[in-house]
Every structure is written in structure tokens, then in C-alpha cells.
Computed example of a mutant assay.
Amino acid sequence: MVIGGLDTRGTKSFCLYIAGSSTDLEVMNNLLLNERTGTEDFGTSYCALGIKTVASMAVCDYNLLSVGQDGLGDNSYVARIGSGSSAEFYNTLADLQNAPGYAPRDVHSIPGIPMLDPETLHLLPDSPCADAGTPLIAQGIVTDFDGDPRDVLTPDIGADEMLNASAVEIPQLATGPLTLEPAHPNPFNPLTNISFSLARSATVSVTIHDVRGHLVRRLASAAALDAGRHTMSWDGRDGAGRIMPSGAYFFRVQADDMFRSGRMLLHK
């Protein structure tokens, strides 16, 4: 999370400025908010993102890029690509997404105001950053700046994770209208069971995801289930019947507007 024009280049202000190029730099789940105005000391132009070339980042996506006037007027821009007289400025996120050679970067990123608590910098309940990120478990990012667990499927953009049911990694603690049990057996090979209980009838979907959050298999899709305990099994295969490799996977159970998730390990 970067707030304010913390990096300056002469009379330019950036939240994030990348001067070189990289084949492995990943810029994801970042909240880039430049709140400087066009009349301040660094205000000849100010941007959320500045890069020397489109090759500066191997991956850039699932970010929020915002400037004081949403990139319209007052010398505010969502991004600058290039340097000196050859630099190109992009007023809006849509302009940046359509910049020559920029795709597929930032295709899932969002514009707008992040809606933060001004004192704690925690996300407010109506923040557009909620559930708008991508899992970074493979990169070792599993907690936020408070030490709270990240949502394993749809983390929030930025350094804060609003606590919700799917961020709880110990599913047996999730009670109420939807109660989820740990996968059993776990680790497993070749089959594991996912059990949950409904306090009332509900429309239920059960999905399996890999560590990057990609959908692997649907075990149930909008199924009408009665109140009580239910069990579904996963045989370690994807939707096309292919055997999945060993590793960690996540299961997600959604009942109406409630959801829970848990972790399991396929070990061969």
C-alpha cells in the first residue's frame, strides 16, 4: 500500500516508480493512491504509477490506481510511461490499459477511491478494494499488516484484509448458519471428503481452487440443499478429469450469501 507521492523525480510525484526492466517483477494487490494536488510543490505532474518502459514489470495486475481527481485535469495522471520529452501520460486506468504494448497488464485492476480509515488505514466496509485482489500464497504473503490471515481465494487489495469468514483457515471454528469441517482425510490420496452443515435450506456451491486461486473443479453449482449435514468428495482431478499434481488446494463452500473455505494437501 502506497499513499501519497512518496517518490519524486524532480517536479514529478509518483506512488511507485520503476526505472529499470525486469523479467520477474510482479506488482500485484497494491493500493497506489497519490493524493497530491496540482498546486503543491511537486505538482507539475503527479501519478499513481511511473515506469520507464512497458517491460519494467513482468506482471502488473489486481491493483488500485488512483489520483486526486481520478486522472482528469489538475496535472494528475494514473500513469506515466517513458521519461523526458518522450514520456506518455495516461489520464485514466482505461487509457493505461489501452496503451501500446501494455496489455495484459492491469486488466483486473480498478480505479477510484479506496475508502480507508484516516487514522488506522484499514479498509472501510464499502471499499472497492474488498475481495478485489488475487491470492499471493505462492509468494509467501498469507497475512496482512496486522497479522490477520488473508482470504485464500479473494484477498483485498492493499495491506489490510477485512476479516471475513473465508479468511479463517481453521474451518472447524466457523459456526452459525453454515458450519464447515476440516477436509478428511488431510493430507489425502486419492480422495478426500468435504463436510458442512446448514442451519436452514440454502443454495450451495462447492469449488476447489489451486494456491493461486484458479478454479480447479466444481463439486456443486447452485444446488438446492436442505438443512443438515452434507458431504461431498474430491478425487484429486480437475473438471476435465485430469489428475492434479501434489500440493496445497483450497475448498470453498458458499450457501446463499455465506461462505467458508479451508485448506487441504494432495500428497502422492
Rank of each mutant, 00 (worst) to 15 (best):
L153Q: 11
L153K: 08
T154G: 00
T154F: 12
D156G: 08
D156Q: 04
I157F: 08
I157W: 06
G158V: 03
G158L: 03
G158Q: 07
G158F: 04
A159D: 10
A159G: 13
A159T: 07
A159P: 03
D160W: 13
D160L: 02
E161P: 04
E161N: 06
M162Y: 01
L163G: 01
N164L: 05
N164H: 14
N164P: 01
A165I: 00
A165T: 13
A167K: 05
V168T: 13
E169R: 15
P171F: 11
Q172S: 14
Q172E: 14
Q172D: 12
L173S: 15
A174H: 01
A174V: 12
G176E: 02
G176T: 05
P177C: 06
L178T: 11
T179N: 00
E181V: 00
P182K: 11
P182C: 05
A183C: 04
H184S: 14
H184V: 10
H184Q: 10
P185W: 10
N186I: 04
N186G: 02
N186F: 02
N186L: 04
P187F: 04
F188H: 10
F188K: 11
F188M: 09
F188Q: 09
N189E: 12
N189A: 11
P190D: 12
P190C: 00
T192R: 02
T192M: 07
N193W: 00
N193A: 15
S195I: 03
F196P: 08
F196S: 06
F196K: 08
F196V: 03
S197W: 00
L198C: 12
L198S: 12
A199L: 08
R200S: 15
S201N: 13
S201A: 15
T203Y: 01
S205G: 09
S205V: 08
V206R: 11
T207A: 09
T207V: 04
T207G: 01
T207N: 11
I208W: 01
H209F: 00
H209A: 08
H209Q: 02
D210S: 03
D210N: 15
V211C: 12
R212E: 12
V216F: 04
R218Q: 14
L219P: 07
L219D: 06
L219Q: 07
S221T: 14
A223D: 12
A223H: 07
D226T: 14
D226H: 07
A227N: 08
A227S: 15
G228S: 11
G228V: 12
H230D: 11
H230G: 11
T231R: 05
T231L: 04
M232H: 12
M232S: 07
W234E: 07
W234H: 05
D235M: 02
D235F: 01
D235N: 14
G236T: 09
G236D: 06
R237Y: 01
R237W: 00
R237L: 07
D238C: 06
G239H: 02
G239I: 03
A240Y: 10
A240F: 11
G241T: 06
R242Y: 05
R242T: 12
I243M: 13
I243N: 08
I243D: 13
I243V: 15
M244A: 10
M244D: 05
M244W: 04
M244R: 14
M244G: 03
P245N: 09
S246I: 01
G247E: 10
G247P: 10
G247K: 06
G247Q: 10
Y249M: 06
Y249F: 13
F251K: 02
R252D: 07
R252S: 14
R252F: 11
V253A: 10
